[in-house]
Design a protein around this nucleic acid. Sequence first.
DNA 1: CTCAGTTAGAAACGATTGTTTGAATCTTCG
DNA 2: CGAAGATTCAAACAATCGTTTCTAACTGAG
Lengths: 214, 214
Amino acid sequence: MAQPDTVTRILDTAEVLFAERGFAETSLRNITSKAKVNLAAVNYHFGSKKSLIQAVFARYLDPFTERFHRALDELEARHERDGSEIPLEELLETMARTVLEVPAERNSLKVFMRLLGLAYSQAQGHLRGYIQSEYGDVFTRFTELVRRATPELPDAERFWRLHFILGSVIFTLSGLDALRDIAEHDYGERVSVSDLVLRLRPVVVSAMQAPLPG
Amino acid sequence: MAQPDTVTRILDTAEVLFAERGFAETSLRNITSKAKVNLAAVNYHFGSKKSLIQAVFARYLDPFTERFHRALDELEARHERDGSEIPLEELLETMARTVLEVPAERNSLKVFMRLLGLAYSQAQGHLRGYIQSEYGDVFTRFTELVRRATPELPDAERFWRLHFILGSVIFTLSGLDALRDIAEHDYGERVSVSDLVLRLRPVVVSAMQAPLPG
DNA sequence: CTCAGTTAGAAACGATTGTTTGAATCTTCG
DNA sequence: CGAAGATTCAAACAATCGTTTCTAACTGAG
């Protein structure tokens, strides 16, 4: 089998190492030596370490946003025909399906989620700005649809609940390996990612439908 | 006012910088220069950067675990007298109260939560091991009480739901500043930490009581 | 006061970081 | 083939990192 080209080998290796140790803790020498690529190749092909980090995200987020937009188009068209509102469950289902779909093509969902978690928690100010400016639109569109699906919730309440849920998902899936080991050791059952998504569904729906705070 | 001693000045400065930028991204020179302390002071008083990181956590977690154990003692004693089980709401309430209590003495809860979030997300393998070995007991005790309060949940399901909730809390509170700015800008209301805890309560309870996945 | 022990300070250590350089090699196409 | 451009490579760059060393200053007990 032919070796993938240098750019691909760098991206493949970088996303795994970034997901394992974080950005600052992963040196370009770690990446290039494991990828069997010359050190200077990163700066040659990507310009800088910052740009490499952004490129790693783009390789996930570009196809994700495209598919998600398409899925929302279809969902809206279907409900526009019969004049019904899109129910919350369908919106969450669509998002979950798209999230599961995209990384399946290449790497594991775990890496994708770890990266998302790092984007929120690590310093890397440039990353948050980059993601917001490049991919903020699809999130805005989604939240607007959620707004129409949950008209009983005050706007601020819905905002916070969406972030509670985002925290659950990112935290759980990005720490999946460690948690899975504990769960397997203590309860003897090995969960897959789709098991977890199945477990998340009723919890997420209940969270969104919780009574308003007194 | 008398300057706090060197050790305290280092810890005060380190916890803020760690919370802002992470561990790897915060150099000892950042800390010592901002704390107006000699560079060598960190290695003299703490031995290494690793030990400094652990000391920062210990200053929060030592009083937290002590108070939390005491609060659980009291809760158990009260319910042992009338033979009733401790309801889930009381357990969550007790934990929330203790979490809010401890950092109020010194710094903001935000820093405490940012640090907890970093402990989970950052590489720093030594940190997870340290926290687990030093403070694992109180968490084990708490989960056992939650088990008795939710006998209808399978053990594995309860394990995962607790971590879903942990994710919500840590993610939201550790990203509080950024989220608060957005919420204030979009919805014109400035939330406090206790507002957020108030909002979290019904969501968390509903999450734990969600129907089992099909 | 004196002296032992603790703390503070300036300077340097070796190691590692991201990046740049310039020559060597490979690829492409007229 | 052969020249032009793209890519690879080894080496070095300056900057920064955590840590160590050694001396100076301070502190409290006899």
